[in-house]
Every structure is written in C-alpha cells, then in structure tokens.
Computed example of a mutant assay.
Amino acid sequence: MFQDFKIGILGMEYTVRFVDEFPERLSEYQDNVDGLCNRYNREIFIKRCKDKSISEEGRERCEKDTLRHELIHAYFAESGLSANTAQHYGAWAENEEMVDWFAIQSPKIFKTFKEVGCL
C-alpha cells in the first residue's frame, strides 16, 4: 500500500497522507468522502479503504483512484482554475464530475499518448 509523500504540483509542494481517519479539523467530512485536497494548506488526505468486501487489489485500486482525483483538484487549484471559476455555484473546475472525468480517463489518455509517442 501507499506511504505518505511530498509531491510538486505546478511548483508548489503538497503533502499527501494516507490515513484511517481525517484529522479532527476535517472531521466533518469523515463519513462523506474518501479523500480531501486542502489547497490552502497544500495537503491531500486519502482515507485507507477498509471495506472488507473488497479484495486487497480492489482496495489498492480504490486508493489510486482517490489519489488521482485529489491530485486533479490540486492541479486545478494551483493553476488558478478553481479560484477563477468558483465564483459561480457548480463551476466546472470545482465540479466533482469534471474532476472525476479527468481522474478516471487520464490513465487511458496517457496510455494512448505513450502508444503513439506523443507523451
């Protein structure tokens, strides 16, 4: 499974933590989400998957999916897209469906780019 690490996102350092529970200051999200990106503290929290009905491979896939999703949030935040589109409710750069689309499709897109030699 994953270990905590630091990563550069568009020139800014983010800390990524894999946790069983979110810190107390983020406890309001505890039961609603699998990951959080706090752009102001430049930190990402990924909750470890504890669902006993999911295999070890499935838990790893769940954590990877969540990590990709939260990293996309960080990229949108650091690029200025989140701040500049968040003036309206449901703005695309804060929209969970849009972030999910990027997070879910990016491995497939990168694979295609690699196959055709344009990565």
Score class of each variant (00 low, 15 high):
E96P: 13
E97T: 15
E115H: 02
M12D: 01
S82L: 06
V33Q: 04
G80S: 02
N95R: 15
A74P: 02
N38G: 03
H88T: 08
D31F: 13
Q87L: 04
A103L: 05
K52C: 05
I44F: 11
A91E: 12
F22V: 04
A86P: 05
E70L: 01
A77C: 12
E94W: 02
I46A: 11
L81M: 15
E13F: 07
E63P: 02
K52E: 15
T15V: 01
I109K: 13
D51G: 05
A77E: 14
Y40W: 10
F18Q: 02
D31S: 14
I104R: 14
T15I: 00
F18K: 02
V16Y: 00
E57L: 07
D31R: 15
A103P: 04
E63G: 02
G35L: 11
I44L: 10
P107I: 08
G90N: 00
R42G: 02
T15Q: 03
F76T: 05
L71D: 04
A93H: 05
T15F: 02
K52G: 08
E56M: 00
G90E: 00
C49I: 12
K114H: 05
M98V: 12
I104A: 06
T66W: 03
P107W: 14
N84E: 07
C49Q: 13
L10F: 11
R39M: 10
I72Y: 09
R59M: 14
E28F: 12
R48G: 09
E43G: 05
D100W: 05
Y40L: 06
E70M: 01
I104T: 14
L119I: 10
F110T: 13
K64I: 12
E115I: 01
G8A: 07
Y89D: 02
E60M: 11
D51L: 09
N95C: 11
Q87A: 00
D31P: 06
R61T: 05
